[in-house]
């Protein structure tokens, strides 16, 4: 496989959830535009941060990429295969190499299964390991995520949030994935535990050459781990750039507003930057605004912003933004 070829290509991906009315004859009365025409590539071994306020469609994007939700339109090309074109066992086979780590370390582990059963489940489904072999692999995985190997017979409720998240990571590693979608894996954890889990993810990435799509709801969380960062607003990607570029030269007014809210430790830099307060609420994804999705809260909005949807343009090298005014 060509190492320069993107591991994942997301092309014009959209996911609309129908809103149903009526009890027996269900009519569709509208759609939640959870993800609306997003495109990006991922390079092998990188971490792409996906950031946006809660409700902007990050989880839906992640779940549509892994085909937990079938997309309304668009393509997801993983290692050359378009996942939107396959289904059933063929899909299950293809997406083995994509795994997911969930936000809620309590809800994402079946309370009636032991840790060993949870971690072994992917191997049993795909018949990769059986019996003693599976047992040994479980211990290996527990060790990899920094848990004692004798935890295999315990139940999830006996563990703390951080430990549970490690169990979820071990399960995601069981099939030797190449891409892991991390859906806010640290948002539910204590601040003191967050760094440990991030360090674990980074260490695993180095050892296993993993690629991460790392979802978070604020820019400070992804800064440490990401190589590139994409900013989402109301189902759209409004800006995408290399990490340092994005934090130093944010182009989109929304990114600028988000960044102005991130605390800066250095007082010299802090003094130079103005806090931009976002006014109003995020519009409903059922009736998104015409033109630019951000225009209703943008302090720079002009007439054109209500009429034409801005395309993502490469404004500086490898730095994309969807705004008429840059």
């Amino acid at each position: 496989m060509n190492p320069d070829q993107p591991i994942l290509q997301v092309k014009n991906l959209a996911k609309y959830f129908p809103i149903r009315k009526g009890i027996i004859l269900q009519r569709t009365s509208g759609y939640v535009h959870a993800v609306d025409d997003i495109s990006f590539d991922m390079r092998r071994g990188e971490t792409l941060g996906l950031v946006g306020e809660s409700g902007c469609g990050k989880s839906t994007a992640g779940r549509t990429i892994i085909q937990l939700y079938r997309p309304t339109s668009g393509n997801v090309i993983f290692e050359g295969t378009d996942l939107t074109g396959v289904s059933g066992s063929a899909l299950r086979q293809t997406r083995r190499k994509i795994q997911m780590i969930f936000q809620d370390p309590y809800a994402s582990l079946d309370p009636r299964m032991t840790v060993g059963q949870i971690i072994a489940e992917p191997m049993l489904i795909h018949h990769t390991h059986q019996g003693e072999q599976a047992k040994r692999r479980v211990q290996e995985l527990l060790d990899m995520v920094g848990l004692a190997t004798n935890y295999a017979n315990r139940y999830p409720h006996e563990f703390s949030g951080g430990q549970r998240q490690r169990i979820g990571i071990a399960r995601a590693l069981a099939l030797d994935p190449s891409l892991i979608i991390c859906d806010e894996p640290i948002s539910a954890l204590d601040v003191s535990i967050q760094a440990q889990v991030v360090n674990l993810l980074e260490d695993l990435q180095r050892r296993m050459n993993l690629t991460y799509l790392f979802i978070a709801h604020d820019l400070s969380m992804v800064r440490h781990i990401s190589n590139r960062v994409a900013v989402m607003y109301l189902g759209h990607i409004v800006e995408l750039a290399a990490r340092d570029e994005l934090y130093e030269n944010p182009l989109h007014p929304y990114t600028q507003a988000l960044l102005s809210a991130v605390p800066i430790p250095d007082p010299k830099v802090r003094g130079k930057r103005q806090r931009i307060i976002l006014e109003g609420d995020v519009p409903s994804p059922i009736h998104p605004p015409s033109g630019c999705p951000f225009r209703t809260r943008c302090r720079l909005a002009k007439d054109i912003c209500a009429q034409v949807r801005p395309e993502n343009r490469e404004i500086r090298p490898e730095h994309y933004a969807a705004c008429h005014l840059v």
């Binding site: 937990l68 969930f102 992917p122």
Partner: peptide, 14 residues
């Protein structure tokens, strides 16, 4: 609706 059902799909179950 629990996430562990979704997790189960992502590891390949039907």
């Amino acid at each position: 609706e629990q996430e562990y059902i979704q997790a189960s799909f992502t590891i390949g179950s039907n």
